[in-house]
Simulated scan of single mutants.
Amino acid sequence: MNNRVTSGFNPNLFHPFFFVRKGLYKAIKKYAGELQGVLMDFGCGSKPYKALFNVEQYIGVDYNGDGHSHEKEEIDVFYDGKTIPFPDAHFDAVFSSEVFEHLFNLEEILPELNRVMKPKSKILITCPFVWNEHEVPNDYARYTQFALKHLLEKNGFTLLTTDKSGTFITTIFQMMVVYNVQYILPLFGFLMKISPIRFILKFLFILLPNLTGTILNALLPKKQDFYQNTIVLAEKN
C-alpha cells in the first residue's frame, strides 16, 4: 500500500485549508483499516484518500451534475443520482467523504448504499459541520452526529463509532483563513502576481493565523461542540 496522500489533502501550514484537511486526513487514516475487500468510494472525485486504504479493489462512483467539474478526476462509474449501477451485496466496504451534504435525496441514497453492500460490511463517512457554501447550487445540508445516527439506523445500519475533527479554536481559525483567501487577498489584485509580495500576504493571511490557531489549540481547552467534521463508522445490519 502506498501511504502517500497528495499535499493538498495532507497540507502544511501554508495551505488555506490546513485545519480541515489535516483533520480529515488524520481521521480517515485512523479508520481506513476497518474497510477491507472490494471498496466503493461513493462521490469519489479525484480519490484523494485512496492511498490510505489497503483493499482488493477500489471503485470510484460519482454523479455528473452541476456545481462540480469532474475534469481530470478518477471516476470509474457514474450513477444517475438515484440508482447505483451494481448488483445487491456487491461491496465489502463503502467510503464516502464530504458527499452527503450535496445529496438532496439522501434518504433515497442510503437504502441504495445498503443494497449494494454485503451483510456486516462497513461504511466510513465524513461530513462537514462548519463550512461555507460550496459546489453551489448543490449544497443542501450540514449534519450533526445525532442526525447521521438517526438516518443510518433508519436505513439499515448500526453505528459503530462517531468521531469529530477540529476543535472550537481550529474551526474559528480555519474559517478566518477561508474568509481571508476568498475576500481579503483578492483586494490586492495584481500585487498577488509579484512573488515577494504574494509570499508576505500569504504569510500574513494564511500562515500566521494557521500557526496562531495551532499554538492556541495546544494551550487552551479543546472543546468540540463547535467543530469542523463529523466522522462515522457504521455496519450494515
Rank of each mutant, 00 (worst) to 15 (best):
G33K: 14
L187R: 12
L219E: 08
L219T: 09
L110I: 07
N217S: 12
H68F: 05
Y179C: 09
N237K: 14
F91P: 07
M192H: 01
L233P: 00
H134E: 02
P137T: 08
P128L: 06
S195E: 09
F129A: 10
L219K: 14
E108W: 05
F95W: 00
E74W: 12
K164L: 04
T6S: 09
T167I: 07
A147E: 03
R142T: 03
I231C: 03
K222P: 01
A234L: 01
T161K: 15
F104W: 12
I75R: 15
N10G: 00
S97D: 09
N12Y: 03
T230L: 03
F100N: 10
L52E: 08
A218R: 09
A32F: 11
P137A: 10
G43R: 14
Y25A: 09
G23K: 15
P87W: 14
D163A: 12
A51N: 14
K22Y: 13
H68W: 06
P111E: 10
D225N: 09
A218F: 07
A89M: 09
V130I: 10
T144E: 01
K202S: 03
E73S: 13
P16S: 09
F146Q: 06
F42S: 11
I109P: 00
T170R: 00
Y79K: 15
F157K: 15
T170D: 00
E135A: 10
F146W: 07
L35W: 07
Q228A: 07
D139P: 04
L35Q: 05
T161A: 10
K47E: 05
D139G: 02
F188W: 05
A51Q: 13
Q228S: 05
Q174H: 08
A147S: 14
K149T: 08
L204Y: 12
F199A: 00
Y79T: 13
N12M: 03
I184T: 14
K30I: 06
I75M: 13
G23D: 11
F205A: 08
N3W: 11
V55T: 05
F199H: 01
F19L: 06
E101P: 09
R4N: 13
P128A: 07
E153H: 08
Q174T: 01
N114S: 15
T214G: 06
N10L: 02
L39D: 04
G65T: 04
L103Y: 02
E74F: 14
V130T: 11
L233K: 07
F168L: 02
I169G: 02
K154R: 15
P48D: 11
V94G: 12
L113M: 05
P137V: 10
L216S: 13
G8M: 06
T167K: 02
T161W: 08
K30D: 05
G8R: 10
G43L: 14
N105Q: 03
L113P: 00
E73W: 14
K47S: 08
F199K: 05
R142C: 03
E108C: 00
W131I: 00
I197Q: 06
L211P: 12
L113C: 00
K30W: 07
D163E: 08
